[in-house]
Nucleic acid binder design. Structure first.
Length: 768
DNA sequence: CACAGGTCTCTTTTT
DNA sequence: GAGACCTGTG
């Protein structure tokens, strides 16, 4: 029988349209992975297409792995020749074969963002640019954006039109690229851009891959950036068999260069595209979908669609606002514990989602106290922990002698008495001689003369050489063990910080496990370069183990593509979610992006959605007072259980738990009360007043944050006045109204057009 | 050269 | 609150 019998009409339509461009608009939970796998099986089984000619691209290894697994199960024999991979690993595989055409060595290393940062720091130092005035992060951001738009340093120089800042940036970009190249390294964005360069510069290489990938599928298409779009366009240009799947409502990676126009304008680029909408949702209850639909309806310029389900209304949504982030965490912990005790749900059925990684800390604290197993996805990436980076730097040094950054990192780890002065001298010497830093180390006697310093360096070099000589015939596992033994790394950690050493040593053990797993999965002897490459391209989400019975804690971004029976959306507060910048910044599309993020969050829930907000929260060491998120207001009240509670809920009552010392005792929130949060009665009456206000949610809370410039009283200008803005120049005030928290002022600028902004932030100066 | 202690900056979100 | 960075001391 056909492979397609499990599909609904629309899914069937999408799965059987094989030739030509296809756009599948797949709403949240509409079974797109099922469509993609069935489509693949259909291509092979029914259309006689060779698996060899199929390319499926995803964004994360996890998604790629899942798709691979499902295709394997469905297709069986031959499925291993289908190329299923992420954008980045696809590019790495291609570049490993051909990058020599672009003047790089095929054994290039991949720099993560920490590496990029370190390299940028060096670059700026070399160019003698004051990092107080120009932050390295600023340059890195611009460079990343440029690469996502396929712009070279030369392009940027041309676009600078003599502007000093822009010229400087173009120069830094060029210098940064030179450094990368001399380290034989590529950063994340280079992986895509260099592949495009390869294809445009060497048509015969492109043709080779066009012939191979006659049928292309791209998942999460709404998250592609211009470079990725171009990559796909080039590959598909010959046969035009390109099928993209995505949901414009789930486009949440603009900050990473994702261009929502790629999906919105697909039909313009491919006028003969077949478009299929998948609107039946198999995941969530009607109540949850209604909430999601209601929120996203406030965005403009979306592809028209409405999710529906035959699952029934389901449970109402719960919303609770509490006073502190600690109470919020308690509430979540208690709810999870209760359901577990009642046998209603396992820990793994729960996910707690939040906007920023920093929010996980308090949640973790409470989960530990309650003894509930949990897993945090993301935050500090496993591979960017210091101990792991140290080991990796050893491996990189052994693998690629040209990676100066790695060499410098470990030269004095553990301490060998080789300090900054010595490094500086070797560095200068290497630059003068135009050799790699490691080469400079080898010839240190020429730079430093004979002496203690040179002896220390040479014994380091000898050690590395010994490791190198062994790489060929021992496993990576043994190599790592030998490194750790030789440098007595664990002893160093213990000596350095006896308290923190335990965690770090555990991390090293986990790293060893990953090494072993990697070597097991690769049949022949796994090469060190391959291992380093895999490590460089893992995302946090790739490491989640769905079988462990743990509550999942993660950001909304990490949650995309996942589903859970019970979801907690925490920290739903204006200023946090939507974030401060999206509310008060001058780019209105940012608020829409936040709203899409909210939509993603809501649609993760299958059966039960609980939304929480706190009235106060520590942000960057200071207490902030936030109103309930405007997105909550967009959800119809009838979808909530009972009245939407704005007043303080009674504290959750605990069983007799040693760690809590009884319920509702605020004094234990030492940090919070110590920094000047009003005591409970004050907060309560304040909030009652707020709840009674005409505009319940936007109410009158004025940020008590030190130095906050919002809500700073009435502006000294009025409608008709001429004012000056720091960025937009001069203009005339056309409207001025009370926006609740701050004055909303509209200005018709002479050159910049009409802008609406908040007075506290616009810092308008009245002109006489 | 190493380390301790102080100051400053910063946050979205991630391959 | 954490991490990066700077400065002074041994």
């Amino acid at each position: 029988m056909s492979v397609l019998e499990m599909l609904n009409d629309k899914q069937l339509e999408a799965a059987t349209q094989i030739e030509g461009p296809v756009l599948i608009l797949a709403g949240a939970g509409s079974g797109k992975t099922r469509v993609l796998t069935n489509r693949t099986a259909y291509m092979i089984d029914e259309c006689g297409i060779s698996p060899w000619n199929i390319l499926a691209i995803t964004f994360t290894n996890k998604a790629a792995g899942e798709m691979r697994e499902r295709i394997d199960r469905m297709v069986g024999h031959g499925s291993e020749s289908i190329w299923v991979a992420t954008f980045h690993s696809t590019c790495v595989r291609i570049l490993r074969r051909h990058i020599d055409l672009l003047g790089y060595d095929n054994s290039f290393t991949i720099y993560d963002s920490d590496d990029s940062k370190a390299l940028m720091k060096e670059t700026l130092k070399r160019l003698q640019i004051d990092t107080k005035q120009y932050s390295e992060k600023g340059f890195l951001n611009r460079i990343s954006n440029a690469k996502n738009e396929l712009k070279t340093p030369e392009d940027e120089k041309k676009d600078a039109f003599g502007d000093f800042g822009d010229e400087l940036y173009a120069k830094v970009y060029g210098e940064y690229q030179r450094s990368l190249k001399s380290n034989n390294a590529l950063d994340f964005d280079d992986l895509i851009m260099k592949t495009v360069e390869l294809f445009t510069g060497f048509p015969e290489v492109l043709d080779n891959y066009q012939e191979r990938f006659k049928y292309i599928m791209v998942d999460e298409y709404q998250d592609t950036n211009t470079a990725q779009f171009e990559l796909i366009r080039l590959l598909a240009d010959k046969y035009k068999n390109i099928c993209v799947v995505g949901d414009d409502d789930q486009s949440i990676y603009k900050f990473r260069g994702a261009n929502i126009r790629n999906i919105l304008d697909f039909e313009k680029v491919y006028p003969d595209a077949k478009v299929v909408k998948l609107e039946q949702n198999y995941r969530s209850t009607q109540n949850i979908l209604d909430a999601a639909n209601a929120v996203i309806a406030n965005n403009k310029g979306r592809k028209d669609k409405a999710l529906w389900t035959d699952k029934g209304e389901g449970e109402k949504i719960t919303f609770v606002q509490v006073d502190t982030a600690y109470e919020e965490a308690d509430l979540i912990v208690n709810s999870i514990r209760k359901d577990k005790r009642n046998g209603e749900s396992d820990y793994r059925d729960n996910a707690v989602l939040y906007r920023t990684n920093a929010q996980s800390r308090i949640l973790e604290e409470k989960f530990v106290m309650a003894g509930i197993p949990y897993a945090v996805v993301g935050g500090v990436n496993f591979y960017s922990r210091r101990e792991i980076k140290d080991i990796l730097a050893y491996l990189k040094t052994i693998d690629n002698a040209r990676d100066d950054l790695a060499v410098k990192r470990i030269l004095n780890v553990p301490k060998r008495g080789i300090g900054a002065t010595t490094v500086g001298k070797i560095n200068d010497f290497s630059l003068r001689e135009d050799i790699d830093f490691y080469e400079g180390l080898k010839r240190c006697e020429e730079a430093l003369g004979r002496g203690k310093a040179s002896d220390k360096i040479l014994s380091f070099v000898d050690m590395i050489q010994v490791f190198r000589s062994k790489v060929e015939y021992i496993s990576i596992e043994d190599l790592v063990k030998e490194i750790l033994d030789t440098i007595e790394y664990e002893q160093m950690l213990l000596l350095e910080d006896p308290d923190g050493a335990k965690d770090r040593i555990e991390n090293i053990e986990e790293f060893m496990n990953k090494v072993i797993a990697f070597e097991k999965q690769t049949d022949e002897k796994a090469s060190l370069s391959e291992f380093l490459e895999e490590v460089a391209l893992v995302a946090d989400i790739d490491n989640v183990d769905p079988d462990a019975d743990k509550v999942m804690l993660m950001t909304l971004h990490s949650a995309k593509g996942l589903e859970f029976p019970k979801v907690f959306l925490s920290g739903m507060e204006d200023g946090l979610f939507p974030g401060f910048m999206s509310i008060y910044g001058d780019d209105p599309t940012e608020l829409e992006e936040e709203r899409r993020l909210c939509y993603v969050g809501i649609t993760r829930a299958m059966n039960k959605l609980t939304i929480t907000a706190s009235r106060s929260r520590m942000v960057r060491g200071e207490t902030q007072y936030n109103n309930v998120s405007r997105f909550i207001k967009e959800i119809p009240p009838m979808l909530f259980s009972g009245r939407v509670e704005l007043e303080r809920k009674p504290s959750p009552t605990y069983g007799v738990e040693r760690s809590y010392g009884g319920g509702g005792d605020y004094s234990r929130y030492g940090t919070a009360s110590g920094t000047g949060i009003p005591a409970r009665p004050v907060a309560t009456s304040q909030n009652k007043a707020r709840a009674a206000a005409a505009k319940p949610f936007i109410a009158s809370a004025i940020s008590l944050q030190k130095g906050a410039s919002i809500g700073g009283g009435t502006p000294d200008y009025k409608v008709g006045d001429r004012v000056k803005h720091i960025k937009f120049g001069e203009g005339v005030v056309t409207s001025l109204k009370d926006g609740g928290r701050d004055w909303e002022v509209t200005v018709d600028f002479d050159t910049a057009g009409t802008k609406k902004m908040f007075a506290g932030f616009a810092k308008l100066v009245k002109l006489c």
